[in-house]
Each structure stands twice: as C-alpha cells, then as structure tokens.
Design a protein around this nucleic acid. Structure first.
Lengths: 304, 304
DNA sequence: TTCATTGTTCACAAATTGAGAACTATAAAA
DNA sequence: TTTTATAGTTCTCAATTTGTGAACAATGAA
C-alpha cells in the first residue's frame, strides 16, 4: 500500500541523485527510503535504479518510469489543489531558499506574519547566497535578486530592488563628495563580489551611460557587512536600498550622485517547472507579492 | 498515507453507488471504506459525497473530482503495466461474469488451464445469464454471446458461436424429419427464451431467407436443459453447437435442415472503457482467444 | 408507527511504516 | 596495495496506520 507515496519517494531519489540525499530532503530515515524503493521494484518486477555503493543511475526502465510517473504525480497535485477547499488553513511544509541579507532583513518578518495566518504550516528556510538548485535540493521555492533571463524555472516578481551609492557623513567631510562617476576613481570603494561584475554603471539625466571599473578597498560577499563598513567611514558603497535604508534614514549614510540612475534589479520568487504549484506555495508567493509589491517598505518615506 | 488507495476507494464508491456495495466489491469492511472517504474529504477539506442513510450522491466538487481522478488512476494503471516486467507471474484478482452454460461447459476448463499457468492469480467468477453491469458491479471482464452493436464497452471476439437444429433419432422416427422450415410448424419445438426473439431464421442455399414464428412446447432459460429435453425425445431444439456437440457426436441428437444456414453469433469478452486494461485481464483474454479462436474444440471433427 | 437498510463510530487486532544501529560493499585516497 | 569514507541494505523495535466487527444513529419505505 502507498503506491503514490512510493512514486514520490522514487522521484525524489532520482532528482536528489541518491537514497541518502533523498532521505535527507524527505526527512526520512534512509532505511525507509530504501525499503520503499525495494517495494516499488518488486511490485513492478523491474529494477529501476542501478545502485552501487557510490552511485545510483537509472536503468532504462527506470528512466521511462520516471518520465511517466512525474507527470502523473504532477496531475494528482493539480487535482488536489483544484478540488481542495481554499478556505481551510494550509498545512504541510514549504522548503525555500533565500539570499542571506534580504532574507534576514525582510523575508523573515514577512514569513513571521504569514505563519501567523497559517499556523499549521511548517517552513524550512535555507538562508544562503550560494546558487541553489531547486530540483536537486527538493525546494519548493527560492528567492533571487537578479535580472532574470533564464530558464527552466518559473519566476514571479516580488519587488523592485533599487540601488544607491552612499557613504558616511564623516567620510564625505574628509574626502569630499564626488560629483560625477569618474570622481569615484579617487575614492575608497566597497564592493560586493557576488554581483558578478566589478563595473558600476550610471546613467546621467541626459540618458548617457557612464561606467567605472571598481578597484575596491574592501571586498566582501555580504552586503550588510559592507554597509556597516561604510557607516564606519571606510568608503563609498554601492548598496541595495533594502540594506542601507535604515542607515540612510538615521543619517548614518548619505546618498551621493543622486542625479544619476543606477541599474535596477528585481526580487523574484522562482519555483521548479512543475505544471502546478502546490497551494501553500502559491499562497505564500501571493502573500509576499502583496506585502512587498512595487513600493516596498524600505523604499517608502525616503527620498534618495 | 495511501492517497492513491483513497482515490480508488472513492471511485469504487461512486461507481457502486454506495459505501456498502463498494465495500462488498472491494472485499473490505464498510467501516474501512467509510474511514477512507472521511480521510479523503478532510484532506481536501471538501465534501465529495452527500450521503444520507439511504442514498449517496456526488456533490458538485465530488463530480469533478471523480472525473479527474478516474483519469489519473487509469494513467497509473497504464504506467504500471507498461513498466511491469511481463515475465513475472501475474497476481491479483480478476472478477468476471460468464453466461451459465457456456461458462460451465467451456470457460471453466479454459480458466483451469489458465490458473495453472498463473498460480498467483485469484479468479472470481459470477456465472449467470442475467445482464450484468460491468462498471456498477466492479467487474474486470464479462462474456457475452451476441451480435454486439453497442456500446460504451470494449469487446474482443473470443470465438464464433454456431447454431444447429436437431432432435433425437426416436423423435424423428416417430414424427418424421422436416425438409423445409415451414415443416417445423407441425413439430414440437423447444425454445430458449433469453434469445430475445421468438422467430427462427433460415437461409436456403439460394440465399433466400425463411422465418418461422416459434410456438414452442417447452420454453426455458437454460440451453442445457433444452438439449436434454431434445435428447429425451421431446422435440426439435435450436441449439448452439457448444451445447449440443457432444450429444450429436454420440448420436443422441441428429442435425436436421443442414442445407439451411442459421444465424451465427459470436462470443465476446467485454470490458469497461478504461483506456488501459490491467495486464492480468489482457493476458487472460489473449489466452482465451488463443484457446477458442475461429475453430473451437466443440466445432472440430464434426460435420453438421 | 415499525422495519430494513445505510453510513458512522468505537475498541481491538493486524499490518505497515519509520528510526537507528549494525553490516556490506566499493570508489577514492594514501 | 591498504585504508578510509561513504552509500545502500538489513535488522529489530516502537509508533502509526489500517482493517474488522459490533454497537449505534439516521432515514426512507411499508
């Protein structure tokens, strides 16, 4: 008994690339996963996975079984959400990944509010700036701050992410306030090295683009740290407003080059390309879009 | 746990028209069926069946859930048979219905042979000449002797069914042997009243059709009984050869009007219009087609 | 009204499931 | 080559789920 559950376990094993990892992702003992697989294989009378002690690979039958089964499981998920009463409180687990700074600053509050609306839900968050593979890690949802062009993933915009150039008043008093992007060459710059580029781009009020190659004094993979360094007077930081807004509101940081436009990014909720999103995930995304939207709290009441 | 099993139980409840009957057909306690339904409904948060103590009717949600779920369950059955190793011995239960005479005379031997090939199988036969509703009674298969024109059922021809007119030598000695169909009007006729008509049709060797209206001396709903009555000299019977062949071979009955052709019927295996037949059912049908075919044992070595 | 039948609920027994440890096997490292 | 680390299997035990059958409640029919 439990055909469907066996199928789901099998799918997870295939996508996680092994029984151990699948067991982790499913929060199951590996013995249980192993047994479900054996059950499935004996019921079908077919070997689905060739497993050595080190690697698991699909057999030919396993491959075609996987392709068929994934569709059906998807169909059932669809049927469930279609006929499930949307008024009942959600339950189950949402596994998600979020970037460190954005996650801790803003997502955590939002999810706290969401959990109060749906106390039966379990949320499992992986805060990290590394690139996560949704399918392989069995996640329902991840947040990306980017200009998405890819991919096999489906994305929904959660919010605009603005950037701003700023420094502490002390620093500006000592080193002067730059008036043009090229002035930055004579300043101490603080750079976020996960942005994928070491070039800062500006567009002036005539629409002309200016670029400078950043040779930074402090380089880090954490925007909060860079912001703190800027507050401490270590130089000029190119910072997303969701990180620096409080320091700016408090006067600890002063925006500079405000007449220039900086490239905008967007925060996305991305999820795997299953045809149908589970209801709980969809409701969470709706909640976040509603909460952040085009005018998120950190960009309100502030004129940069 | 056991989502798929819940769905299957739900389907059976809908098609059987109630929890009690579904429990019978599934060989489950009705309490178990009831609980599975409750589970399903609480999981979905939706009432699927409006059940009073006397009737069960689908709610609107139940209706659409049923339609969706039946497709998916069908898909899974297909996947299973597609990937299941066809060399493994079959298991599970086949529920089937068969007409009384044909079933007892011929099917029983065939199924005996089939069971020896597949000892893990369970076969559940309902011998009866009443009209069975495959879906409502949860049958996998039924046999019909007819000239099928309907229906929502899918049918596969198992064998030709020939008919023959015959009587005992004693009877013929006493009453004379008819030479034309119209001669029958002066004879004692034995009639099978489930044939749906009381007209016997003949085609002579020039292709011309003759009909006579049967006013029979003995009427019964059992072909074996009529054959036995004919052997005992009670008159002329219009009998399928699968019933009368032995008596003819033994000389207890003598074919008459052999130059006339009688209407032929066919034996069919019919099964519900699910897109995919379970492997065990399909294998049984193949076996029977192979065994009977166009020249079944009872029509061999006999010239009528 | 009474009766027959259907579905629900309950307590208990049986079966299934998961956890965790011990064990086996093998690829990679030394 | 030997050693080591890791992936998968198997085992036992506890927890959960499932099925059973009886008692119960509800309702349409006589």
């Amino acid at each position: 008994m439990g055909q469907l559950e066996d199928m789901k376990v099998f799918i997870r094993v295939v996508e996680a690339g092994g029984i151990n990892r699948a067991a982790d992702q499913l929060s199951l003992a590996k013995s249980a996963v192993s047994r479900r697989l054996v059950n499935l294989e004996t019921r079908l009378g077919v070997r689905l996975l060739n497993r050595t002690t080190r690697t698991s690979s699909l057999t030919e039958e396993g491959q075609s079984y996987y392709e068929r089964v994934i569709k059906v499981v998807d169909d059932i998920a669809e049927i469930n959400t279609l006929t499930a009463d949307s008024n009942t409180s959600l339950e189950g687990t949402i596994n998600l990944a979020a970037p460190l700074s954005f996650g801790l600053c803003h997502l955590s509050n939002a999810i706290d509010a969401f959990m109060k609306q749906h106390p039966e839900l379990t949320i499992n968050i992986d805060f990290s700036d590394r690139k996560v593979d949704l399918v392989e890690e069995g996640l329902d949802l991840a947040f990306r701050i980017a200009n998405l062009k890819d991919s096999s993933l489906i994305a929904r915009k959660i919010s605009d992410i603005k950037h701003i150039l700023c420094a502490s008043p002390d620093y500006l008093k000592e080193h002067g306030t730059p008036k043009t992007p090229s002035d930055l060459k004579n300043h101490r710059l603080l750079h976020y090295n996960l942005s994928g580029t070491s070039i800062w781009k500006f567009i002036d009020n005539k629409g002309k683009q200016h670029s400078i190659n950043v040779s930074a004094k402090i380089i880090a993979n954490n925007g909060d740290y860079l912001k703190d360094m800027a507050v401490a007077g270590h130089g000029i930081v190119f910072s997303p407003t969701f990180i620096s807004w409080k320091a700016i509101a408090a006067g600890d940081l002063v925006p500079i080059l405000s007449d220039y436009k900086l490239p905008q990014l967007k925060a996305y909720a991305v999820y795997p390309q299953t045809r149908y999103l589970s209801q709980r995930t969809r409701v969470l995304i709706d909640f976040l879009v509603e909460r952040f939207g085009d005018n998120p709290c950190w960009d309100q009441n502030i004129i940069y």
